[in-house]
Design a protein around this nucleic acid. Structure first.
Lengths: 238, 238
DNA sequence: CATTAGATTAAGGTAACGTTAAACCTGTGT
DNA sequence: ACACAGGTTTAACGTTACCTTAATCTAATG
């Protein structure tokens, strides 16, 4: 599978030069021309690396960087800067860039830096399939094993995390206690099905605003539980 | 600051000729006469470029090249080969050399190639692949193999350093013990081993303020360990 | 209001993690 | 070749956090 690279630069000449050379080198390349567009491409394209110009319309490179890291996205970033100013470099690296280059640069140099980064990170399988479940204010990061609510991390125990993840994967569907036991617990669990209730309770304590009026984990009486589905996401009722 | 060049050749006549001419051109030059000696000079001298003969005692040029790249060192290398054989050239470039020259050559030609390489890489200060990982008060310098906490250097053993570096490269992601064994130990160990735990423990002794409440290396029960991610850095609120 | 299903809480057992010391390598100098 | 030192690994033991059970409490349904 080709590695995917997102190039962000508003100067068409630079942008096309990079695109041409990276495609020649066998990468799957997409270009966008302002900072905000990065976030539109994130989910559909899911890049393995971003080449990011510092000066951009709408949202500059530093901001993009910071926002990505804030969203817990660890995609490697190479920052391009027209200035040789060291302070820019510091600012870039401080905000989460992995490497930087000053313009003008040779395509060959960019390529070797990209390869260097992939060499450093590719040892792990499936870099780009770090699934993130977003449900309103709730985010579940599989690879980081982190759960955030309004951006604040909440600490879950292993079972709680697995349970939540399983619910996420079947979002919107009602799951019986049996199904949950089969999905989250070991094959044959001999104990009581009530154990699901206990973990659900703990989960709600941690992720619901008010455990009495759950927004995410809904009880379906006589059946089981379900996680709020995509359609029902914002049921604005008084 | 003078650029530093390390010359590696076992023929004294060639070696001295190169040394003389490069010093004349204003470079800081050191010579060694076998492949292994390169690695002894790496830290104390920290060359900006290496002129490397293909045929060497103890460890040939290709091996030196490959080992340097394996250590993630991107110092530019000019390979010298007595043979005009193209396969040597290919082998050299495949293993990470930046340029090659066939003997005999004029000192002037070597000089111009050196200048060409510096022109290509001079856009950045110092060495290109010398990535620095900064995580709060912690800094990891890949090339110097140094780790600093609040600017104070801490001494790590090789394994500890490799382990920390691997965690840095996958910062934020949870890594299983298996993955760490793969990445750091370079073998596939099936079954139960606590080696990783032991080294994690030693690492924490050295880099954490309080090993009981780690700020950097977090345990993820039932899964493995992870280095504090980008976003979680500063959650300063009352 | 009785009955049933779900929610909550506390307590004990246990598997996973942390730590330490000792054994085992490996390279160096005498 | 030998002893020594630093580093790594193994193994044993201590500790903690988590899962489960079970008992009690609360909300829904008829």
């Amino acid at each position: 599978m080709k590695k995917k690279i997102l190039v962000v630069d508003d100067e068409p000449s630079i942008s096309m030069l990079i695109e041409f050379n990276l495609k020649l080198a066998g990468y799957d390349v997409r270009c966008v021309h302002d900072g905000e567009a990065v976030f539109d491409m994130l989910k559909p394209f899911r890049p393995d690396l971003i080449v990011l110009d510092l000066m951009l319309p709408k949202m500059d490179g530093i901001q993009v960087c910071r926002e990505l890291r804030k969203q817990n996205n660890a995609v490697p970033i190479i920052m391009l800067t027209a200035l040789q100013d060291v302070t820019d470099r510091i600012a870039g690296l401080d905000n989460g860039a992995d490497d930087y280059m000053t313009k003008p640069f040779s395509p060959q140099e960019l390529l070797s830096r990209i390869q260097a980064i992939f060499r450093r990170t590719q040892s792990l399988p499936g870099n780009s399939d770090n699934i993130v479940h977003d449900i309103g204010r709730l985010s579940v990061f599989t690879e980081q094993r982190e759960v955030r609510i309004d951006g604040r991390e909440v600490e879950l125990t292993p079972k709680e995390f697995e349970l939540l993840l399983f619910l996420c994967r079947h979002r919107g569907k009602v799951l019986s206690r049996q199904q949950l036991l089969h999905g989250v617990w070991d094959y044959h669990f001999l104990g009581d099905t009530r154990i699901v209730d206990v973990h659900i309770s703990h989960l709600r304590d941690k992720i619901e605003r008010n455990a009495r009026t759950p927004e995410y984990i809904m009880t379906v009486r006589n059946v089981g539980y379900k996680l709020t589905g995509p359609a029902a996401a914002d049921s604005s009722l008084a």
